[in-house]
Simulated assay, not measured.
Amino acid sequence: MEAKQAQAAAKSGNATLDYWRKHYFLYILIAPALILTLVFKYGPMYGAVIAFKDFSPIKGIMGSDWVGLYNFEKFLSSPNFDVIFMNTLKLSFFGLILGFPIPILLALMLNQIRHTGAKKNIQLFLYAPNFISVVVVVGMLFIFLSPTGPINHLITLITGEPVMFMSRPEYFRGIYILSDIWTGAGWASIIYVAALANVDPELHHAANLDGANLLQRIRHIDLPTIRPIMAIVFILAAGGIMSIGFEKAYLMQTAMNLPTSEIIPTYVYKIGLQSGDYAYSAAVGLFNSVINVLLLITVNFIVKRLNEGDGLY
Rank of each mutant, 00 (worst) to 15 (best):
M45H: 06
I297G: 09
A118Q: 04
V49W: 06
V299R: 02
S289N: 02
L236F: 01
G184L: 05
G68H: 03
V299N: 03
K59Q: 09
L89F: 15
F40A: 02
E202A: 12
F165P: 11
G311H: 04
P150A: 08
I241E: 05
F287N: 02
W187Q: 13
L294W: 09
I132S: 07
R217C: 00
N198Q: 13
K4N: 14
N80H: 15
N198H: 10
Q112P: 00
T159E: 14
K22L: 04
T159C: 11
L29A: 01
V268S: 02
P147F: 15
K120M: 01
L154Q: 09
K270V: 14
R21H: 09
D200A: 07
I102H: 01
W182Q: 07
Y267F: 10
F142N: 12
D277C: 12
F85K: 08
L105M: 02
A6D: 11
N292G: 10
Y127M: 13
I190Q: 05
L157E: 12
I271D: 07
Y27R: 01
I61S: 05
A212T: 01
V193Y: 00
F40Y: 07
E247A: 06
L258N: 13
G117N: 11
W20L: 06
Y313D: 14
F301E: 11
L203E: 04
H153F: 12
L286G: 00
G160T: 10
P265L: 01
N87K: 06
I302R: 02
P265I: 06
S281Y: 05
V303F: 01
K59N: 08
A231M: 07
A3N: 15
A207R: 02
G139R: 11
D65L: 03
N208E: 10
L124Y: 15
D65A: 03
Q253P: 14
L89S: 12
G309P: 13
P169F: 04
V135C: 12
N292L: 07
I235Q: 05
W66N: 07
S92Y: 14
Q5D: 12
G285D: 07
R227I: 10
T225F: 00
N87P: 12
Y24G: 10
P265H: 03
K4P: 09
I291D: 11
R217A: 04
A283T: 00
E2H: 14
S133R: 06
Y127R: 08
S167Q: 15
R114Q: 09
L145Y: 09
